[in-house]
Structure formats: C-alpha cells, structure tokens
C-alpha cells in the first residue's frame, strides 16, 4: 500500500499549459500517473499532448472525475488555484509553487481548514509526493524511487528528499510513499500527518524523516513518535552548523534564539527513541540495516 496517492488517483494539473506545468505534468504522466486533465483559464477546449484542457477545475472534475490536483502556477496565483481546486471538490492538492507570500499561505491554510476540512494540501514549496510504481505528483524524478516498500519517507527539504530516495534505491530498498512537505512556514501537511498515515499503512515498516532548522515541527513530530509509533524511525536534521538568525534559502530554514536549532530537534527525537543520523549517507545506511533486519 501507499499513503495519500496510488494507482487509482486521477490528477488535474493546474497550469499544464505553462512551461513548468507542461514539463512536470507530462513527466508525471509518463511515470504512469493518471493525469486526466489540465486547467488554464481561457484555454479550455485545447489539449497538451492529448491531455484535455478546461477553463475551470470544476469543469475538469465534472468531466473527468479527477480526485487530485497538481498546482504549478506562479506565486501570485497559487492560493486562488488551491482554493478553486478545493471548491471543486478535489480531495488532495499538491502545490509546488515557491515564494508564496506568508500572509496568503496562512489565510489559505485556514480557509481550507474551515471551509474544506476534507481536503489535504501538500506544500506549497515542496517537491510533491510519489508512491513509487503507482503515482508521482510533483517534481521528483521518478527513476530515483524504487517501488515495493517498505520505507516511508517524509521530508521538509527538496534535494535531501531526492538524496534519501536515491540512497535507499541504490541499496535495493524500496519505498511505499515519499512525501515532500516543503519548507514553508505554513505547510498544508506536516510531519505528524504523514507519520500517522505511515503508522497506519501495513506495507510501510520503517520511516525516514528529514527535517531542518527552524520552527518546531520536528519537536512536535518527536512527541507524536514517542507516544503513537511502534515502527522504527530514522531521522536526519540539516543545519547543525547554520549560523543563527540567518535565512538559509527557505522561509522555513531560519533559527532565532534557541528555538528551532538542529540540536534541540535532535535531542527531542532521540528522547522519543528515534535514531538520528549525522549525515544523509549515514541515514541511508542505517535504514538499509533496519530493513534487512526486518527480514
């Protein structure tokens, strides 16, 4: 099994006619994802390599029955696109858009919670989600993932997610699902949402979690793991040597004062019984060992 997306997921790509949308949307389709529609206002009736384009998400859903949306539009349009998808009854929205204003993100998140409690948003500013062999929504290169499980991955960082997939796949260790939750201040889906789903998924037998400095999501995840998880968790936290008070590329990766330091997160995770690796390679090696031990 997998979490959040599988071979039955049907996807509408918002922004399929744009350069990025076309590239990634079609790559997702080539991977085997059921990309059934694209949406671009004013371009309804056309198609992108056989994928029909609609003016609105509502129309696309009505005709194709799409259940998921891939939002790949510029930052100033992204929040409207997310809300439009939710209004149209889409239950899973993956938004890769980077540089969305924090105020828009906070408002959109809270509107989703209030008006569309059944809708899950992954991202923004994330690589997306892949259930290897079943569906890939986002910008992850499908060929670095290996189907068959048993490892679930949840990560706040893009390139480190790819690194993790790659390290496991090279050792012949497959993944059930890999979720990039993104590094923004208000992610639609957080570590705990994914850990909960992995804990409930019978095919996921171990979880790799990749965090970074800033915020307190990793600490909260540690609490959850300590109380509710019996599957082994390997974690890696980036940013041990990051100077405090400086933004390191993501809005998320910033520490102020003692809050959100890598050390605080590492301590909290170890306290909860999580094995914390000191670098991504080590995290991969540790996971391989655990998986081999599972028999």
């Amino acid at each position: 099994m997998s979490i959040f997306v599988d071979e039955t997921t049907t996807v509408v790509v918002q922004g399929l006619t744009g350069g990025q949308g076309r590239f990634h949307g079609l790559r997702n389709r080539d991977y085997g994802t059921k990309v059934v529609a694209g949406v671009t206002p004013g371009k309804g009736g056309t198609d992108v390599e056989g994928v029909p384009i609609y003016d609105t998400v509502a129309e696309a859903v009505e005709v194709t029955g799409a259940t998921a949306s891939f939002v790949v539009v510029p930052p100033r349009f992204a929040c409207d696109a997310i809300l439009e998808a939710a209004d149209a009854g889409i239950s899973l929205i993956v938004c890769i858009t980077e540089f969305i204003p924090a105020q828009d993100e906070a408002l959109t998140y809270n509107r989703l919670v209030r008006e569309h409690p059944g809708t899950r948003l992954i991202g923004p500013n994330c690589p997306g989600i892949i259930s290897p062999g079943k569906a890939n929504i986002g910008i992850t290169a499908g060929d670095i993932a290996l189907p068959g499980g048993p490892v679930g991955i949840v990560s706040r960082s893009g390139t480190l997610t790819y690194q993790a997939l790659h390290e496991l796949s090279q050792q012949g260790v497959g993944q059930t699902t890999c979720v990039g939750i993104g590094g923004d201040p208000v992610p639609g889906t957080n570590f705990i949402d994914c850990l909960e789903a992995f804990q409930a998924d019978p095919e996921t037998r171990a979880v790799m979690m990749i965090g970074e400095i800033g915020g307190s999501e990793e600490e909260r995840a540690a609490d959850y793991i300590g109380q509710h998880m019996d599957k082994p968790v390997i974690a890696y936290i980036a940013g041990v040597t990051a100077p405090p008070g400086r933004k390191m590329g993501h809005a998320g990766a910033i520490i102020s004062g003692s809050q959100g330091t890598a050390q605080a997160k590492i301590d909290a995770l170890r306290e909860a019984g999580v094995t914390v690796a000191s670098n991504p390679t080590e995290a991969g090696e540790m996971m391989v060992e655990i998986v081999r031990g599972l028999g």
């Binding site: 960082s157 890696y236 590329g249």
Partner: peptide
C-alpha cells in the same frame, strides 16, 4: 543545489573537522 543539501554540506564539512567559508 537546494537549501537543505547546502545546509547539510556545511554540517558534513564540520563533522570531518573543517569549516565552511560560506553557504
């Protein structure tokens, strides 16, 4: 490439006894 990998690179350089000149 990528903020996470760049931060991680700083950490690994530190772990093997060096110091990064930049991010």
């Amino acid at each position: 490439n990528g903020a996470g990998l760049a931060m991680s690179t700083l950490d690994v350089v530190n772990q093997v006894g060096g110091k990064a000149a930049n991010f």
